[in-house]
């Protein structure tokens, strides 16, 4: 079970109403390498991975939900006071027709989230390599969004999220090293 803390992991501030940026950010909300995919991937894989790394998948999967909430806050703030006309100009006309200003799990191109974005292979090495790849792809996505954004407050939050991807990748790599260890061998640090 989870306990919920009613605050964001890192503050989210937005300088201007900018639905165009929201359209790009949706990639990290409901895209293939977004935070939803990450959270569900790790929390699902943890059941069939050796005990020594279950806790890592549990903790990182949980943190991904905290990131999801930050992205949701950004998208909400960027769009909540936009007119239908502004949304249309930002390329969100189709979104508006279907969802009004509600958030939806879709990627930047409007394709709905699908479980085929994530894998649980049952082979611990294969699963952890997928997790490392997912973190690197999410890091790249954050970079490309930062490159397109001129909102210094949003970019501050996105820079934090990008750094977390780097840390998660490192931890998954360490998990692989733990699984590679020969049994009955002394570990030297």
């Amino acid at each position: 079970m989870w306990y919920y803390e009613k605050k964001l992991q890192y503050p989210v501030k937005v300088s201007t109403c900018n639905p165009k940026l929201a359209k790009f950010l949706i990639e990290q909300y409901g895209g293939a390498d977004g935070e939803l995919a990450a959270a569900l991937r790790y929390l699902n894989q943890r059941y069939t991975i050796p005990d020594k790394v279950i806790g890592l998948l549990n903790d990182i999967g949980t943190e991904e939900f905290a990131h999801l909430e930050m992205i949701a806050t950004m998208v909400y703030k960027l769009t909540k006071d936009a007119t239908p006309e502004q949304l249309k100009e930002a390329g969100l006309g189709a979104h508006y027709a279907n969802h009004d200003k509600a958030l939806y799990y879709e990627n930047a191109a409007g394709a709905p989230w699908t479980a085929t974005y994530i894998q649980a292979k049952g082979d611990p090495i294969a699963d952890l390599y997928e997790d490392i790849a997912a973190e690197e792809k999410a890091r790249a996505t954050y970079q490309w969004i930062i490159n397109m954004s001129d909102d210094p407050f949003i970019n501050d939050s996105l820079t934090f999220l990008r750094e977390r991807e780097i840390i998660h990748s490192q931890r998954f790599r360490e998990a692989v090293e733990i699984l590679k260890e020969e049994q009955g061998k002394k570990r030297i640090f």
Binding site: P50, D51, K52, L179, K180, E181, E182, Q183
Partner: peptide, 12 residues
Amino acid sequence: MPTHRKSYHPYI
């Protein structure tokens, strides 16, 4: 040579 298979004891 490293071993190609490892084992663990899951919680029961």
